[in-house]
Every structure is written in C-alpha cells, then in structure tokens.
C-alpha cells in the first residue's frame, strides 16, 4: 500500500485514476490544480505523484520541480499529458527520472507503472535522491 497523490484538472480522469488505484489498495489524495497538490504534499509527503501538465494555477512541471526539489515524493513521479511535446517534457524532467504517459493513456498501463514504483522495481524511470538539505521542507 502506497500513499499516492493525483493532480489532474479533468474531474472524470481524476475520478478514474482514483478508482483504479484504490482498487489496488493504495491511499489516494486528489488535487484539481498544482497549488492544491503542492500544499497537500507539503503537509504530508507521498510515495508517488501522478500529475497532469496543463493545469490552472501552478502547472505540472512547476509542481514536480518544486516537490521533488523539496524531497516530498519518496518513490516516483508519473506524468500524464496530452501535450505534443512529451520529448521536451521528458528532457526537462530527465534529471528527476520521471515516467511520461501520453494521453489518451491506458489505465492498466498506469496501474503497472504505479505497482512497479511501489514495489521499488526499476521502471523506465528512476527516482533521483532528493538533496539532503531540503528534506526538512516536508
């Protein structure tokens, strides 16, 4: 069982991801935008972050850079995006070892990636250790 935060502005997708992850027995937190997600994760660190990129307020890229930098996500980050430039996103987040799933995505594929991150198995991405000095932020 992992603690997972899902940041997604589309209510249907948010609901769907929650349903799937809860079925696997994880504890899921929901956020409709980047700022809400950051506040949640700062209050209590999570194991995995599943985030959209285009969101009102703080976008996914800023959210991920912020929370990983602060060491608030322990195991890994999965990005869901319908933006054309996944390669660019992947490059920008390469240092953090982020898995990018383009939309439309398959919920079962998402589920697989979450399970492998939760089990600590190497996925297509690896989590970089957060800087020690910033661990205290969470």
């Amino acid at each position: 069982m992992s603690r997972i935060l899902v940041a997604e502005d589309d209510p249907h997708i948010l609901r769907l991801i929650s349903m799937w992850l809860q079925r696997e027995g994880h504890v899921v937190f929901e956020a409709r935008n980047g700022l809400a997600a950051r506040d949640l994760v700062r209050a209590e660190p999570v194991d995995i972050l599943v985030s959209d990129i285009n969101m009102p307020g703080m976008d996914g890229l800023a959210l991920i850079e912020s929370v990983i930098g602060e060491g608030c996500v322990r195991r890994g980050v999965i990005v869901l995006t319908n933006r054309w430039d996944h390669a660019e996103i992947r490059d920008r987040l390469a240092d953090w070892g982020v898995t990018v799933l383009p939309k439309p995505f398959s919920p079962s594929r998402l589920s697989e990636v979450v399970e492998s991150l939760a089990a600590g198995r190497p996925t297509t991405a690896r989590m970089a250790p957060p800087p020690v000095s910033e661990r205290g932020a969470c």
Binding site: I13, K103, P104, F105, P107, S108
Partner: peptide
C-alpha cells in the same frame, strides 16, 4: 489538445 481530453476519457472508461 481539445480532442484528446474527451478521447482520453472515452478510452479510459471503456477500458475500465
């Protein structure tokens, strides 16, 4: 971009 949002939902819910 606008087409992908409903498509994503349809794809994901149909799979569900």
């Amino acid at each position: 971009h606008e087409l992908r949002t409903p498509l994503t939902n349809i794809h994901a819910y149909a799979e569900t």
